[in-house]
Design a protein around this nucleic acid. Structure first.
Lengths: 344, 344
DNA sequence: CTTGGCACTCCGTCGAGGCGAGTGCCAGGA
DNA sequence: TCCTGGCACTCGCCTCGACGGAGTGCCAAG
């Protein structure tokens, strides 16, 4: 249906409207549009096309005698079919790489990524720490803090270190602990945490009877807090960029800032889509998060060597954003972050 | 000098101006002021007093025929001599306590504090994690990750857990590591990290010769990254409250948001003053941080049982803020956080 | 020292008018 | 069938001037 109504020139007009509006932030009229882009037709023709585009819901105009601006639906079409990928220049690529390579540990990687992404895109950047449960265990250390208190320190291949203190119902000796270490270590090493339950299931049976009570406690902590309810972390940055686009959020800066302060919301944002190969774009009303209905969100997953997804990252900005550029930036940063974590 | 120029009534006028302006956000005129507060004098008299206050630099007026607003100097005088402490109601105290008591670990304590503080004051809240170097060591665990790779996990009495991975120039055995543990453990346990250098100084001499090279490595890591250059952490929240006072930051919301994103800036903010007994107030231009010259900052240190300071917290808001209320809130939260950490 | 009076300043608002960008429609031409 | 130029119309925005009101500074009297 749309195919018949929207011929190539109309699509070209839509693209021109989006591009002009994104760069100037002013409703674009038929005359200036026909002049600036080499469409080879008169303003009157453009007007007719615009009327069609408006009927179909791709553009609208704020006032009777104002130029046209894209609707969410218009941006959607633009993103899906009209925007051409804007590859980063090689100096840009090198800059990204060298900036991220300076990182000394995971925290540093994440913080640098947020910073980099927000600077590249001039938007708010969000980066999820590598998900615990999807990472591989490199080491599980059990520390004997006190006779009835142990600490578990989990180290993953993505560099994340997570610890939990647990109180035991009974006293354990230092020897018990080193036995525990030997029991858990080999079973977990190299495994992803999501696979841990299967690998650990038969543990109580296989272990010496004397060790079973404490082993069960440790096991339940490992399973519950690390696997079922792992603590996900998120870093955010560049919120000052929101004020740069203050014009795009007339009275709605507040809810945006509020939404961005909610860890839960951010996780939802990033968690919904985390495919390391495809960049996802949510435009305006498409967002499931109430406070972000006036924004667009560009996200992508990142993963070790592009295979397994271990986390996600993205940017949040006005619907009037440079989609092509932001998509490229997000994708590029995700790739470098993945490579970096793989090499760590 | 000021004593002779500013008699009691003039001070009362200043207080009235500050209070009215804080609550209404409108320049306050002589007439409404004389009416609303029971000063017992005529508007004309108030005008004379206002003229004096303006000569002395405590108030100013944006336009010739507008009411008066306090200057930074005026707020300073108000805070120092005119504002009466506004004790929290006992339901408020209980609410704070029960909200913070629900915290399960240090991260939770800090995040809850930030949230609580920003809600209580309706401002941006900043909470520093307990400083590593001023905390006492509860446990130092040394984990043997690989033949040339160790991880140090440090646990403090404030609940902070910090880890560092270090690469060694030579191979160490698992036995070496447990020896290291026994050497470091007793010397550090119960000591504050600032005192660590003294306690560890003679370690290499006292240790078995075979252990010395690796011991020196570990020692240098402990000293350099944990003592000399400890990683300080900060949590921030309630930035959405800035938009609540958007009127107070005409064009200057941007630099404020930017400043608040700088960890360094925040640390400076909180680090400058961290006396657990006194609340510090920096008003407008008094702030050493460029971007915060349009804000006021209220900070206080917190410490275990009110003695040692281990961190700081505070709020950032417009100079036109409820100083009395915010000071009370900040002090109260600091006290509860201190108590909570002591009990942990 | 306080008070009432008075002239003055100046901001904010409101309405009128002109400008200009942009639209929708129509009739003519390829 | 589609494109094009022309034309009347709409409507937001800017400017200007008038006006009201809040507030001030100063002065003379109590």
């Amino acid at each position: 249906m749309t195919g018949s109504v929207l011929d190539d020139r109309k699509l070209e007009v839509l693209r021109a409207i989006v591009e002009d509006f994104v760069s100037t932030n002013e409703p674009v009229g038929s005359k200036s549009l026909a002049e600036r882009h080499g469409l080879g037709v008169s303003p009157a023709t453009v007007r007719n096309d615009m009327a069609t585009l408006e009927d179909e819901g791709y553009i609208t105009h704020p006032h009777t005698s104002a130029g046209r601006i894209p609707t969410d639906k218009g941006y959607r079409l633009f993103v899906d079919r009209l925007s051409t990928v804007k590859p980063l220049s090689s100096p840009e690529r090198r800059a990204i790489q060298s900036f991220l390579e300076g990182a000394v540990d995971l925290d540093d990687v994440v913080h640098r990524s947020v910073r980099l992404l927000s600077q590249l895109t001039q938007q708010v950047a969000v980066v999820q720490y590598p998900s615990l449960s999807r990472s591989e265990v490199r080491h599980l250390e059990i520390v004997h803090l006190a006779p009835t208190r142990l600490m578990l320190v989990l180290i993953t291949d993505t560099g994340r270190v997570e610890q939990r203190v647990l109180e035991l119902p009974a006293v354990v000796s230092v020897d018990d602990v080193s036995q525990l270490r030997q029991v858990f270590g080999p079973r977990l090493h190299g495994r992803r945490l999501v696979d841990a339950p299967g690998a650990l299931q038969d543990l109580p049976d296989a272990a010496p009877a004397a060790l079973r009570p404490v082993l069960t406690s440790v096991l339940s902590v490992v399973l519950s807090t690390l696997v079922e309810r792992p603590e996900e972390r998120i870093a955010i940055g560049g919120t000052a960029n929101l004020t740069r686009h203050a014009l795009d959020f007339p009275q709605t800066l507040r809810p945006v800032l509020e939404a961005l302060e909610e860890q839960v919301v951010l996780l939802k944002l990033i968690g919904e889509v985390n495919d390391p190969t495809t960049v996802h774009v949510k435009i305006g009303e498409e967002n499931s998060v109430e406070g972000l209905r006036s924004t667009s969100v560009v996200t992508v997953g990142y993963g070790i060597s592009g295979v397994t997804t271990v986390g996600g990252l993205g940017v949040v900005g006005p619907t009037r954003m440079d989609y092509a550029g932001n998509i490229s930036s997000v994708r590029a940063v995700a790739r470098y972050v993945g490579d970096l974590l793989a090499g760590a």
